[in-house]
Amino acid sequence: MASELLVIDGLSKTFSAPAGDVIALSNIRLQVRKGEFITIIGPSGCGKSTLLKIVAGLDTRYTGTVLLNGKPIEGPSIEKGFIFQEPRLFPWLTVEKNIAANLSLKNPQVRQRVNELIELVRLQGFEKSYPRELSGGMAQRVSIARALLRNPDVLLLDEPFGALDAFTRTHMQEVLLDIWQRNGTTMLFVTHDLDEAVFLGERVVIMNPRPGHIRSVLPVDLPFPRKRSGTAFQEMRRLVLNEFEKVEEPLYDVGGGI
């Protein structure tokens, strides 16, 4: 138990709506080791983003236990980096100032870390550019650097590459793996892309909607870097897809309005 960075147990969350309460998460149980790369996959409405927001401390109205480093999560803090689907950069700040955000570049330590991170996310030469001059992938790399500057214990990523084109997405996945291998930051990565989940995750968490719960957790015992075309990868992908098909079926029975 000592090596568990994040412990989620019996976590439930209900949204109150005028039409009646909606159970977004029901009895979620998940333990994440330090340095682990977890991907969470599921159809829309399965509560995967809600789960991530709770871990981030952005949503504190839940029941159950969520412990980070053995302490309950009470609100946002620098131990939890968060990457949104959109980069959410400050348009009036240059790349380096966006990374520093509320820290001062005049502080030599911050300055040095920012320089290192710019190198890590491969943005040398764009330090003084404004967000409008960046491509989608570059902007998202800035937001990753911004999160890493605070040395978070866990990086929470909410479909961070969902808005990027296929080529950029593949490239970004490699950049992220590179960062993970070099920094050892624990990653909790939400996606709806099957390939992405299998390519990145050491364990794939499969979630099921109505109410949102964890269907299964599949370990992916493939060495990095993984080859998408390899048979082992394809086999793993099929395994996850199977779980999915089990997930989808009952939905048709209910006549769920997706």
Partner: peptide
């Protein structure tokens, strides 16, 4: 609002 959410995460004073 999306930017304000970011400032919450990074705990801007």
């Amino acid at each position: 609002l999306k930017l304000l959410e970011v400032t919450g995460i990074y705990q801007f004073t």
